[in-house]
């Protein structure tokens, strides 16, 4: 299985949660801490370099993000 990772720009995120519903791996959650505009942004739950991360870099989260807050990388 291919491995990937994402980077979420928490200041662009409005916390809509569409990425969380779209991610087949459950690799995204809502952050407790507010961003500067007062939203609870999405946060990636895995470590970019971790060997056992589940993210495949499928980009489903980024495709549905209305605020283009997610960048996707593949190994």
């Amino acid at each position: 299985m291919k491995k990937g990772f994402i980077r979420i720009n928490s200041e662009l995120c409005k916390g809509g949660g569409l990425c969380i519903a779209a991610c087949p791996k459950g690799s995204i959650r809502i952050r407790n801490k507010l961003n500067i505009r007062g939203y609870h942004p999405a946060e990636y739950t895995e470590k970019e370099k971790s060997k056992n991360r589940k993210c495949t870099g499928c980009a489903l989260c980024a495709i549905i993000c209305p605020d283009i807050a997610i960048e996707v990388f593949r190994d």
């Binding site: 990772f5 916390g15 949660g17 569409l18 209305p66 605020d67 960048e71 996707v72 593949r74």
Partner: peptide, 23 residues
């Protein structure tokens, strides 16, 4: 790692004024 998704060039850098989740 190679980037597979990023902002298109024909889009300015401005933050969208739309409500959360808007199409």
């Amino acid at each position: 790692a190679k980037q597979v998704f990023t902002r298109p060039k024909a889009l300015k850098d401005n933050i969208f004024h739309y409500c959360p989740g808007c199409g």
